[in-house]
């Protein structure tokens, strides 16, 4: 071959190999084929990985099972016959958590979790919340309910890196209330996870029941002001894969708080049953007997119901978009519940 033809040949080979590399890249060796059933009932056979929003116990960093029935009554003491309850809440904003399988998101937390701890007191108790800001930004806690103007968590910024503040007020009114950071931009602080539930029990206790807390929330993981994930207690589809076990014939009481950012409304629909609904939990008489209530951001209430037949019953947002992005769960009604 002449030198020129050699060169031409080399160029041609280079071009062909380069295009082949991009068009048909080398893929790894095939693995063994396995079958799985998706959470919507579909069946698929694959030799690869499964992309299913199924949160298993091993990977849980925020434990919705634990959160569901965990109430923090604080360190209790008595001063002049009045009950004093002291709590400590620490804010952080550097945690990265797996909020859905394979999806890692920077959550801002009260006491390391989203939502923060459920604070519980009885009407008339003196509540003292020691707030420590270990974050990199200014944070506060704004409690809904009665308190003095200087305890509002709006005009009392708590600086980053260890700033402290003591929120003090008399618990009231009886009901269920949210608390959240009230630093601007509010949307950012709330959507990252700085919120929790504050329950005030009436002096005359409510009837004995299986009590649980559900915070309806979501996450905008790609910052386009639209939620990518929805859920009750943070993890999408969690209670669908891990049904909440309840006992047949026993009264169930749910403290529901909608803190969902970005979307105008949220709602709660129950299958096979209806519930008595107490808006904000402030009156002892229910406002409705229904299977569907609508909540805007910050709205909350108490639901009470009893199942008389065993089996699986779904509960979910009847805004189907939210339901299909994670806000779906199941109650498993049993004759006896093994705790």
């Amino acid at each position: 071959m002449k030198p020129f033809s050699k060169m031409l040949f080399a160029i041609a080979v280079t071009a062909v190999l380069a295009s082949l590399y991009f068009v048909y890249p080398i893929s790894s060796d095939a693995k063994e084929e396995k079958t799985f059933v998706t959470h919507t009932g579909g069946v698929i056979k694959t030799s690869g990985d499964v992309l299913d929003p199924l949160y298993t116990a091993q990977t849980v960093e925020i434990d919705p099972d634990k959160y569901l029935r965990e109430f923090n009554y604080g360190r209790t003491s008595s001063v002049d016959g009045k009950t004093v309850r002291e709590y400590t809440i620490i804010a952080e904003d550097d945690k990265v958590m797996e909020i859905s399988p394979g999806v890692f998101y920077n959550v801002w937390t009260f006491n390391g979790t989203v939502p923060g701890p459920t604070i519980r007191a009885t009407e008339g108790d003196w509540v003292k919340v020691k707030f420590i800001n270990m974050g990199s930004k200014t944070h506060t806690i704004h409690f809904h309910g009665f308190h003095a103007a200087e305890m509002d968590g709006v005009f009392e910024p708590v600086g980053p890196g260890g700033g402290q503040f003591m929120y003090e007020f008399e618990a009231g009114p009886a009901g269920v209330h949210p608390y959240h950071c009230h630093v601007m931009p509010l949307e950012e602080h709330i959507s990252h996870g700085l919120y929790g539930v504050y329950i005030v029990d009436p002096k005359e206790p409510r009837p004995q029941a299986d009590e649980m807390v559900m915070v309806l929330n979501g996450f905008d993981t790609d910052f386009d002001a639209e939620n990518n994930f929805y859920g009750a207690n943070t993890i999408p589809f969690y209670y669908q894969h891990h049904p909440i076990q309840i006992k047949k014939g026993e009264l169930v009481r749910i403290y529901v708080v909608n803190i969902l950012e970005f979307d105008q409304i949220n709602n709660f629909h129950l299958h096979g049953n209806l519930y008595h609904y107490y808006p904000t939990g402030t009156y002892s008489v229910p406002s409705a007997f229904t299977d569907m209530i609508t909540l805007s951001q910050g709205e909350r209430g108490i639901m009470e119901f009893t199942y008389d037949t065993p089996g699986k019953f779904m509960f979910h947002a009847h805004k189907t978009e939210f339901a299909e992005k994670g806000w779906t769960g199941l109650f498993l009604v049993q004759d006896e519940v093994l705790q």
């Binding site: 095939a30 919507t40 694959t46 690869g48 990985d49 992309l51 999806v103």
Partner: peptide, 18 residues
């Protein structure tokens, strides 16, 4: 991490791996 159709989360498989 996840697939969706019309912005609704769908379980799926990914080959050879994710």
């Amino acid at each position: 991490a996840q697939a969706d159709v019309n912005d609704r989360i769908q379980p799926a498989a990914i080959e050879p791996d994710k």
